[in-house]
Design a protein around this nucleic acid. Structure first.
Length: 217
DNA sequence: GCGACAG
DNA sequence: ATCTTGTCGC
């Protein structure tokens, strides 16, 4: 399907309405058991045709990978800023439904989103599982630094919707997805930063998507 | 109308 | 995200 055909067949206003609906279900309180297993998800793409989505399950706090699984399928939805979840989340949800874990780590924003439902929040709410979003670039919000803390503020309410962490000299935008607070999400992500810019589980699944891509193209 | 804009 | 060589910097 061409990019134009996808864009016509994809109903943007209905997608936005669904986000507004799902965002009401987000819980911004710590509602999770002791973290023993993390599920991390990421994707890479082959041209504009195929998506390779990967889930990795990691032991915490050792960060050893216990298992992984992937899907290679046709891309059905175009990338539109703010609507990333409609393109990638269906694959993550399918992969995650078969796994056992305590929290989900997603490459993309949580509530630091124009309608407070970035892909991490989307996936968390659909599965009703704790989730955290980690993005490399800002999508929504105003950045404010107070002392040693850099936060993402919602200019509408002036509430803190995420924190910006420095990792290897670069910024990481962390925001809660579901069933976790801003503070806990940031502490959790900090504990996953070791020798790479990305938190270890995301670094590993990102590498897996790229390795699989080499193998299948 | 103009700028911003995850992956 | 992806297309892509050499190249600047730690």
């Amino acid at each position: 399907m061409s990019k134009l055909a996808m864009r016509i067949y994809f109903n943007v206003s209905k997608a936005i309405a669904l986000q507004r609906h799902l965002s009401k279900k987000v819980v911004l309180a710590d509602k999770y058991d002791k973290i023993r297993r993390i599920a991390a998800v990421d994707s890479s793409f082959i041209g504009n045709k195929k998506i390779i989505a990967v889930v990795g399950v990691f032991e915490y706090p050792s960060l050893d990978m216990l298992e992984y699984e992937y899907i290679i399928d046709d891309i059905r939805i175009p990338y539109i800023p703010g609507l990333l979840a409609f393109r990638e989340a269906p694959f993550y949800i399918k992969l995650l439904s078969k796994k056992s874990f305590d929290i989900i780590l997603v490459d993309g924003h949580g509530i630091a989103h124009p309608r407070f439902l970035g892909i991490a929040a989307h996936v968390g709410v659909i599965l009703n599982k704790p989730s955290v979003g980690v993005a490399k670039r800002k999508l929504y919000g105003s950045i404010k630094t107070l002392g040693n803390k850099t936060m993402i503020l919602d200019p509408k309410s002036n509430k803190i919707i995420g924190l910006v962490l420095k990792s290897r000299g670069k910024d990481l935008y962390v925001s809660p997805g579901h069933r976790i607070t801003v503070e806990s999400a940031a502490l959790f992500v900090k504990s996953l930063i070791k020798n790479y810019y990305l938190p270890v589980p995301l670094y590993i699944v990102d590498k897996l998507t790229k390795d699989l891509k080499r193998k299948y193209r």
